[in-house]
Each structure stands twice: as structure tokens, then as C-alpha cells.
Design a protein around this nucleic acid. Structure first.
Lengths: 199, 199
DNA sequence: GTCTATATCCAGATAGAC
DNA sequence: GTCTATCTGGATATAGAC
């Protein structure tokens, strides 16, 4: 009895994951409003109506993806901060990790695109806006903090720490977009280019 | 007679400009498909039907903006290449000019957003895709060329020139998006941060 | 849990009056 | 040149059968 319920729950979760993953690909390449529920359904190989068995609306699917996107990015930032490394090494680790991640995982670069779109667009659900308002600053702040530590110990040059953090993240996001758009036919740049901003 | 025709033509052009400018603001903040013809009309203070007196469709408005965006950016790149300056000075001039432009002109940063959206989205008119295919590489190539010259004369460091050009432009675009989204409440970073990638 | 059929709504585009 | 009224198509979301 309990086993059956577990199994059902598992299948339900799997189907939900499948829908979310296909929706992610579509939202990333077409945006929220140009993506039709029927697109998501046919990409997932199910009928249009079935989507509503798992989600209340198209917007709910989008909100869930935005939430996941920020959760992953911000958790990674918190982990980074705790790493037992020098400030400079933290930044190198982050840069290499991010670029590697963007290169290897289709989903990773797609999540960045969804974050960028969601941040850049006013035409998104209120709930998504609330998530963005609460979450979007954390990566900038963590990076700024690490930079300031590096400047205190002399291992990072004296550009304004907020500026540096901003340019760091805009570069990363720009590369993620590039990768999501142009796929594997473009190779990631040498992380040392990014690192040279911190000299 | 001819004077009247001239005047009419001029008013027609002005109205067209007005519609395009309002459409640019809306496309930049909401994207193509979330922007309604009626939004453009009411932002421009005219009736919905009147838009169709000036454009065949919403997509035609979008295509015209994409065309203008690439025209301006690519012309600026061609001008840059011809400037009687050393490679390093060209890059400094470009960086300062771009950041200043993005900071001062609402339209400039909006055009970048439209370019980015158009490049990143599959849900755009075929005609826009054709423009992008033909135009999008020019800025990367011009910058790559300048970098190679600078590497030949020893004034620019030896990172891969394609990589450097890519990171340069993704940084600029990222900052333009940031500015278009967050408006005047964020200040542009010191151009020297970007310049330090070229050391 | 899944599908088909359908109700409802809304946006793009057109027609015609002024 | 400009507006109002309207047609039409298509997308979201629901209802109900299996």
C-alpha cells in the first residue's frame, strides 16, 4: 500500500521534472510569452490538457523555474564563500567552475538565460518578480565581499569593489547567454581573461 | 504644392519615429511577444488601428528596430576601425564611448536589449533572423582585428584574440542590459576594469 | 493519469466612417 | 490621417470521458 503510494508519487515527480525540463529549454530559447502550453506539452510528449494536471498555469511553471534557478545560483555562492581558500583562489575557483558548468550543462546555461530574461522583463508574473527582488543581489554581494577581502590582503587590485563585482557577473551572464544561443559550436574563453580584471 | 507634400512627409516621418521610439521602450522591457499593438498605440497616444497605417504588422515594427540597432552598432565599429589611433587607444576609446553612450542614452541601452533578445530568441520574424545572421559577427571581428594589431606591436597581452573579443562584447552587452533594466540608479563601472583584460 | 472536446477570451488585423 | 467597430484566429484553461 505505502509502496504503491511511493511509486505513484515518484512517477508524478518524474513527469513533473520532465515537463519542467522541456519548459526550461523552451522558455530559454523563446521567452515566456512566446512559449505556448501546447509547445511544452508536445515537447514532453503529452497532451495539452495534461500540463494542467501538474501545474495551475503556464506562469506557475515559469515561476518554479525561476525559483530553482536562483536557488542553485545563490546556494553555489554561499558555498563559495565558505570554502577554505584565499580570496583570490575563491574567485579563480568560481570563474573556472562557472565557465565549466556553462560549457558542460545545457540546463545550466538555460537557467542563466531564464534569470536574465526574468530580470530584464517586466512581463513576468508578480510572484517571479518577488523572487527576483529577494534573490538577485546575493551573487553581487558575495563577490563584492570576497573582492574586498582580497584588496585588504593586497592580492587583488584597487578597482572599486562594487564595479568589479558587477563586471564579473555581467561577463559571466553574457557568456552563458552566448553559450545557450550558439550551443557547442563556440568554445568557452580562457578563464584567465576574466581573472585579469582582478589584477 | 511641393512644400505641402514635404510637410506631410515630414509629419509622417515624425509620427513613425514616435511609434518606433515607444515600441523600442516596450520591446526592450517586455519583449516582442508580450508587447501588444495596443500597448504601442496607447504609449504613442494614438488609436490601435492607426499603427497599421504606418506598419504592416507588429513584426515589421520589430524588424525595423533590429535593423536600426545593428546599423548603428556596426557603423560605429567601422568608424572605430578607421580612427587614426593606436590599437590600444582604439579599444580605450571604444570602451569609454560605449559606456558613456549606454549611461547617457536610454535609447542606446534599449537597442542593446533588443539586439540581445533578438539574438537569443528563436521566436522572432524570419526577416529579423536574416539581419542578425548577416550583421552579428562584425563587432566581434573588428575587435578581434584591433586586438591582433595590438598584440603584433606588443601593446596588448597574449590572450587568445577571439576569446578577448568575445569577453569584451559580452561584458559591454551585459552592462547595457543592466542599465536598461535598473535605470539611472546604478552607476557605470570605471572603464579601466574592462581595459585591464587587455593587459 | 491521460486524453479529446470545447468554452472563453483576447490580440492581431481589416473595413469603413469622418 | 485618424478613429471606431468588427472579423478572425489562436491560446489558455476547463469539463468530462476513458
Amino acid at each position: 500500500m505505502a509502496r504503491n503510494q511511493d511509486l505513484n508519487q515518484k512517477m508524478r515527480d518524474q513527469r513533473k521534472e520532465q515537463i519542467l525540463s522541456n519548459a526550461l529549454a523552451l522558455f530559454a530559447t523563446r521567452g515566456l510569452s512566446a512559449t505556448k502550453i501546447s509547445d511544452i506539452a508536445s515537447a514532453s510528449g503529452v497532451s495539452q490538457g495534461l500540463i494542467y494536471h501538474y501545474f495551475r498555469s503556464k506562469e506557475e511553471v515559469f515561476v518554479e523555474l525561476v525559483r530553482t534557478a536562483f536557488e542553485r545560483l545563490n546556494n553555489a555562492c554561499r558555498e563559495l564563500e565558505k570554502l577554505p581558500l584565499s580570496p583570490r583562489e575563491k574567485i579563480r575557483r568560481a570563474t573556472e567552475g562557472l565557465l565549466h558548468n556553462i560549457e558542460e550543462s545545457k540546463d545550466a546555461s538555460r537557467y542563466y538565460l531564464v534569470i536574465t530574461q526574468a530580470t530584464a522583463s517586466e512581463a513576468i508574473p508578480e510572484e517571479a518578480k518577488a523572487i527576483i527582488d529577494g534573490e538577485r543581489m546575493l551573487p553581487y554581494e558575495v563577490m563584492k565581499h570576497i573582492i574586498e577581502e582580497g584588496q585588504a590582503d593586497g592580492s587583488i587590485g584597487n578597482h572599486d569593489a562594487s564595479d568589479l563585482s558587477l563586471v564579473f557577473w555581467t561577463s559571466i551572464k553574457g557568456l552563458a547567454i552566448h553559450r545557450a544561443v550558439h550551443g557547442t559550436k563556440f568554445k568557452m574563453p580562457d578563464p584567465e581573461i576574466i581573472m585579469s580584471m582582478f589584477v
